[in-house]
């Protein structure tokens, strides 16, 4: 459990830009998805997209916002997102295709999770912008889209 109290600022504050950018390249950005119905809460327990169990409290007069920065250290930042994480589940046709898909996902700095033999991409932008990056693999049937939720 990571105990967090209060909002440090917003992820788009210029003061944090350099540090957040550096963390992004090292996969150190974790998103905490807060369902809209829970956005007004001052104490809650939620798990980030990377699996960190967060126990969050705010001052009574503090308002949670989309993009709030809750934690920042040398290895990771935790940022609030309102709503639910959109994911895109992919499966490779064979080992060779899987290597290619893994190479692309890494190069593109996609945030991913592994579920058995599926690669689950955590989406931060419309899905078509992701599709476009691996279009040849999809068209050749080397990578198959399982679902998108």
């Amino acid at each position: 459990m990571l105990r967090l109290h209060g909002i440090m600022g917003r992820a788009d504050d210029r003061a944090y830009a350099r540090q957040l950018h550096a963390l992004e390249h090292r996969g150190g950005i974790e998103l905490l998805f807060v369902p809209p119905a829970d956005a007004g809460r001052k104490r809650f327990r939620l798990t980030t997209d990377r699996g960190t169990d967060c126990a969050v409290s705010l001052d009574r007069d503090e308002e949670l916002v989309d993009g709030a920065l809750l934690h920042l250290d040398a290895d990771r930042a935790i940022i609030v997102r309102f709503g639910e994480q959109q994911v895109w589940r992919l499966k490779a046709r064979d080992d060779a295709s899987a290597l290619k898909l893994g190479w692309h996902a890494g190069n593109l700095h996609w945030r991913v999770r592994f579920e058995g033999d599926h690669l689950v991409v955590l989406l931060d932008a419309p899905i078509d912008t992701y599709r476009a990056r691996i279009r040849p693999l999809l068209d050749a049937g080397e990578v198959v889209e399982r679902d998108h939720v």
Partner: peptide, 9 residues
């Protein structure tokens, strides 16, 4: 850069 030591209500 964390505020976890604030007094809790």
């Amino acid at each position: 850069l964390t505020r976890a030591d604030e007094p809790m209500t």
